[in-house]
Amino acid sequence: MTEELFGSAPEIDPETTRRLHERLVAAAAREQLLDVAYRTLDTPVGTLLLAATEQGLVRVAYAREDHDAVLAKLADAVSPRILAAPARLDPATRQLAEYFDGRRTAFELPLDFRLARGFRLAVLNHLPAIGYGHTESYAQVATAAGSPRAVRAVGTACATNPLPVVVPCHRVVRSDGSFGGYVGGEDAKRTLLTLEAA
């Protein structure tokens, strides 16, 4: 009945859809309506969601975190004006590709840490100081972050790190050298540490 009244909807080819999306992204950026841009990136540790504000990279998420749920949380915590706009993430995409190819040992990206506060932020600020190919124990990180007894809080800070891989919480291990937990899972942590040890 609906088709009889209105006719069938015209087919829109993928190229037209892509061009329309690019125009939407450009208009949103021009009108300053794009608060969070995102894209996905296939990597050796699975598909990562990358999200950035005007201030910098705000979120890196593993598929196991549920990318749709991560975007919904970003809408609540940062802004509902979120759009798939890969161009803003070109520098992060390039540097991550270089990292996974073994050609980059440190990231040089603006980071937006608005999703972390207090001691967790102190831990995140310390993590890039753990050199590529090295690890520190949770206790060592607690001391470096200014609270030597806060070993469990370091674990929580690492587990809630909004920027895994780029802010290297995978370099934090247990005092006995075993991996400990990781937001991307034990296999992802092993892959990252193996890559950096090569």
Rank of each mutant, 00 (worst) to 15 (best):
T2Q: 13
T2F: 12
L5A: 14
F6S: 02
F6M: 08
A9F: 08
D13M: 06
P14Y: 07
P14V: 10
T17Q: 14
R19V: 11
L20H: 11
R23G: 12
A27Q: 12
A28Y: 12
R30I: 00
L33Q: 15
A37V: 05
A37S: 14
A37W: 11
R39E: 15
R39H: 13
L41S: 06
L41A: 02
D42R: 15
G46T: 00
G46V: 00
T47H: 02
A51D: 07
A52W: 12
E54L: 04
V58K: 05
Y62E: 04
R64L: 15
H67G: 03
V70D: 00
A75Y: 02
A75D: 10
A75M: 08
A77C: 06
V78C: 10
S79Y: 04
R81L: 05
D90L: 09
T93C: 04
Q95L: 01
A97C: 03
D101K: 05
G102A: 03
R104Q: 07
T105C: 00
T105S: 07
E108Q: 13
F113C: 04
R114T: 05
A116D: 11
R117T: 15
F119M: 09
V123I: 08
N125A: 13
N125C: 05
N125H: 13
H126E: 15
H126D: 10
P128W: 09
A129T: 14
E136L: 13
E136F: 06
A139T: 03
A139H: 08
T143R: 13
T143I: 02
A144C: 01
A145I: 10
A150W: 00
R152N: 14
A153K: 06
G155N: 00
A157K: 00
C158G: 07
N161A: 06
P162T: 06
P162K: 03
V166F: 07
V167W: 07
H170G: 04
V173N: 05
R174K: 14
S175I: 04
D176A: 11
G180N: 09
G181S: 13
G185N: 00
G185Y: 01
E186G: 07
D187H: 11
T194V: 05
T194Y: 10
L195Q: 07
